[in-house]
Computed example of a mutant assay.
Amino acid sequence: MTIRPNRLVADVLSDAPATLRVFLDFHMRCVGCPIASFHTLADAAREHDVDLDSFLAALHAAAAAPALGLVPPPVAGEQTLERG
């Protein structure tokens, strides 16, 4: 996925949920913000005084990385393994 500065924050978070960690790491409280549907990544970086190039690079890396440690919820009727 290509992440450009003109993409909306909400769209990036929706399309690549792994990027959530990047927003938090950059101390950006965009997650859950009502303005996220209107602010572009460039807007958010400017508002939070974040270097746009570093931010975009981190977003790209997060979006490209496989989701580790995420386990989908069990499907009804399936058995689950419990750890002891």
Rank of each mutant, 00 (worst) to 15 (best):
A45V: 01
A61I: 02
Q79F: 14
D49F: 05
H60D: 11
A64L: 08
A42C: 06
L56V: 07
D15C: 02
V31E: 15
E47R: 11
L8V: 09
L68V: 09
R7H: 15
L70T: 10
V31M: 08
V75F: 09
N6T: 13
A67K: 05
A57E: 07
L13A: 03
H39S: 05
C30W: 04
S37N: 14
A65W: 00
G69I: 00
G84P: 10
T2Q: 13
N6K: 08
E47I: 12
H27F: 02
H60F: 04
G84N: 07
D43Q: 07
A64Y: 00
L59T: 01
N6Y: 07
A76H: 13
A67G: 01
A76R: 14
P17Y: 06
A44D: 06
V50H: 09
G32T: 12
L70A: 10
F55G: 08
S14R: 14
H39Q: 13
T40F: 04
P74R: 14
A10H: 04
F38Q: 06
R46C: 08
E82A: 14
A42V: 04
D51P: 09
S14G: 11
E78R: 15
L41F: 06
R46L: 12
V50T: 12
P34M: 08
L81R: 15
A36I: 01
T40I: 03
Q79E: 15
P17L: 08
R46H: 12
A76G: 04
E82D: 10
F26N: 00
A45P: 01
Q79C: 07
L24N: 10
